[in-house]
């Protein structure tokens, strides 16, 4: 089923991939949403997941930080099995505290931002580093202000999310995730809820982030972004990976008919 156009190796080949999905399955009731996903993401790589809604790409992304529990296969992030502790030949389900500890390495950006509306922008950024990582307030504050400057929102530090545009809120959400200093960033359709004229500012921030070498998995419908920024594009359909390879190859010269049908519909 899978067509590997080429083997992309942007980082040194001896390093293990940061994310390894091996036969990942997930069902909601009788509906099998993921039917065996195999995917490796190298450290520093930017991978875009594309496909029609219902293809399982968002579900897969949510499995990576255990917002959804997988029913089959194994998922590894930085050589730790997601959701399980391995002891001998047994997989022990992780406690909630262990899941939380593993999540601190993984930043996530949601379609609907999900900023905390009762906190100011700065408080949104500082909350988890202070309460979860128990870092020093002065350090966290400095880092938060630095990140706000990077996403171009220094002057909004004391504003409440409700007072910001959608694009500004999403940039804050990216900064909030980065304030945890994650190894991996997950983006779940980060621009889908935005007015068209606000998409650009968010994609710009993500492009800057990709340039810093951050490992990113991005579920997106922005083919332009995928073409410009992604090291690799993965096309999903019906809970399977149909085609993957360099952005130019998958988007510019798709091999599979389903990929061609999808791209001709969205481009």
């Amino acid at each position: 089923m899978t067509i590997n156009t080429t083997m992309p190796l942007p980082s040194s080949p001896e390093r293990l991939p940061l994310v390894r999905a091996e036969g990942v399955r997930k069902s909601f009731g009788d509906n099998e949403v993921l039917k065996g996903i195999d995917l490796h993401v190298q450290s520093g790589e930017v991978v875009c997941l594309i496909g029609a809604s219902g293809s399982g790409k968002s579900t897969f992304l949510r499995c990576v930080n255990h917002l959804e529990k997988i029913d089959g296969g194994l998922l590894w992030v930085a050589d730790r099995a997601v959701g399980y502790r391995i002891k001998g030949d047994k997989l022990h389900e992780q406690s909630h505290n262990e899941i939380c500890a593993d999540r601190t390495d993984i930043g996530m950006v949601f379609q609907h931002f999900n900023l905390f509306p009762h906190m100011t922008v700065l408080e949104n950024l500082m909350e988890a580093p202070l309460r979860v990582l128990k870092q020093r307030k002065a350090d966290v504050r400095r880092r938060a202000l630095d990140l706000l400057e990077k996403v171009g929102l220094s002057e909004k530090a004391d504003a409440y999310p409700r007072h910001l545009s959608g694009g500004q809120q999403q940039r804050v959400a990216i900064a909030r995730a980065l304030c945890m200093q994650p190894k991996l960033m997950l983006f779940d359709e980060p621009t889908s809820a935005l007015d068209p004229e606000l998409v650009g500012e968010v994609l710009r921030v993500m492009k800057d982030l990709a340039r810093t070498g951050m490992t990113m998995i991005v579920v997106t419908h922005e083919m332009g972004f995928a073409r410009d920024v992604a090291d690799r594009v993965v096309f999903m359909h019906g809970g399977r990976i149909i085609e993957e390879g360099p952005a130019e190859a998958v988007i510019g010269n798709p091999q599979h008919e389903r990929t061609r049908a999808f791209l001709s519909a969205v481009l």
């Binding site: 930080n65 917002l67 601190t104 609907h112 999900n114 909350e127 309460r131 979860v132 909030r176």
Partner: peptide
Amino acid sequence: IDQGQGEAAGALGMSRIQTLTRVILPQ
């Protein structure tokens, strides 16, 4: 409270108690 609030807190590594007392209950 929108489910996304709990998910965002969880994705940041906040525990259930922290999520309840810091994110859900204040809202």
